[in-house]
Amino acid sequence: MSEAHKITLIPGDGIGPEVSSAVVSILEAAGKKTGCSFDWHRYDAGADAFAKTGEYIPKALYESIEQNRVALKGPVTTPIGGGFSSINVTLRKKFDLFSNFRPVKSLPGLKTNYPNIDLIIFRENTEDLYAGLEVMVQPDVAQSLKIITRKGSTRIAKAAFDYAKKHGRKKIHAIHKANIMKLSDGLFLKCCQEVAAGFPEVTYAEHIVDNTCMQLVLNPYQYDIILTENLYGDILSDLCSAFVGGLGLVPGANIGLECAIFEAVHGSAPDIAGQDKANPTALLQSAVLMLHHIDEPATAEKVQTALETVYAEGKTLTKDVGGNSGTKAFADAVIAAIG
């Protein structure tokens, strides 16, 4: 067996510990089949961490991610008020995780209004309005600055086109509002166009963001890869998740040059915490992305195949997707399906 992969694990709060425990058990079971092992370094973040350490993101957690370069993160509650920004945004900025990668793909057996969806969102992850540069110009006037840079736009475009070339994707749409924000979104489009010129095998197109929302609802199949800025990507990824059953099913990856954090994109759902009701699918599929990232494709394939087998059979699903099983029973079913 090869040396264990050192992974920083942030279980999160609310349903986070439950879904994280389920995912870890599935990865461990799959790893035993393929010779892949894990050395989990567990740390709290958010409200739970603050209660224990007085810090929302403990220094030891930062150091662990710096050393391991890979983290798996459950949902974390960011306290409202108090001046602390989103835990997610803070981690993305800290480690310059510029590429938010979200594949949106239908799972077998689930009945939705949009069968056989398979599209990918590449969202710039560190700038735009999420730079958090805000000021009260006057007592009744607030100003928020939208930051778009050539560096940020070029590298997210390059990530999208590199992925398309490597994985045989045929089409990329850059999503923008350059008809109104001519300088900021105009710069983003110019960078996308420059990168696209180096990939003649990939069809490149541009859609305005409001039209994109309508086009997605009318016919999401016209899209293959969506390439966009931070705010638009946040909105569009939630919209696209509805095509496959909701945020409880969709994985997410935040990738930089040095580190990567893989996370469930849904919230911490404190109303069902501790009740064995949570669906681990989003975090599990995020873990599959993590396995590919650490070059463990065989383990990733075993986990994904087992997950899809459980969905196709439909006998051990959680209530949010029409079943009657709990978190642990679902995880046990996935483990049993690992070949």
Rank of each mutant, 00 (worst) to 15 (best):
Q193A: 13
L307E: 07
K319R: 14
S21M: 01
A174R: 02
C191N: 04
Q67T: 10
G54W: 10
K177C: 02
M214A: 13
V310K: 10
N211H: 08
M214C: 12
P200C: 01
K158R: 15
L110V: 13
K93Y: 00
D118Y: 09
L227G: 14
F98N: 10
D96Q: 14
Q222E: 11
A242Q: 14
I15T: 08
N179Q: 06
T212S: 13
L216V: 15
A336R: 13
V19H: 04
E229V: 01
A45M: 09
Y311H: 02
A22S: 15
F98D: 09
F84E: 09
G248M: 07
I80E: 14
A306W: 04
Y221I: 01
H293N: 08
E308R: 14
E194M: 08
F50P: 02
V70W: 03
G233T: 12
H266Y: 14
L291Q: 08
S21H: 05
T154D: 07
N179V: 03
K73W: 08
T203N: 09
Y163G: 08
K319W: 02
K277H: 02
V135L: 10
A333W: 00
I148D: 04
L218H: 11
Y130H: 02
A196T: 01
A282W: 01
A278E: 13
K328R: 12
V310P: 07
A174F: 05
A253K: 12
D48I: 13
P17K: 07
A71S: 11
H207M: 07
E55K: 11
L119S: 11
A71K: 06
A205E: 15
F95W: 10
G248K: 11
T112I: 03
G186A: 08
S184I: 00
V195S: 04
K166G: 00
G326S: 08
D210Q: 05
P75W: 09
I172Y: 05
A131F: 02
A29K: 10
I225V: 13
L307D: 07
N179P: 06
L291A: 05
S37A: 10
P11G: 05
F262Q: 07
T212W: 04
F84R: 13
T154L: 07
A287E: 09
G168M: 06
G323E: 12
N88V: 11
G109R: 08
A329P: 00
G198D: 15
P103K: 05
A337T: 05
E55I: 06
D320V: 03
E308Y: 12
E3L: 15
Q138R: 15
E308N: 14
F95G: 07
A131P: 00
I338G: 07
S184H: 01
G35C: 08
D276V: 02
G267W: 09
L249I: 12
K52N: 12
L133A: 05
M214F: 15
E55C: 07
V303M: 09
E296P: 02
A306R: 02
P103G: 06
Y311K: 06
I335N: 03
A45E: 10
T203F: 00
N125L: 09
G152V: 04
L218A: 13
G82Q: 11
D118E: 12
G186I: 04
Q275D: 01
D210L: 06
A4I: 00
R69C: 12
D162E: 15
V24S: 11
P58H: 14
S286V: 06
K177A: 06
R169C: 03
A298R: 11
D39N: 15
V265R: 01
A331V: 03
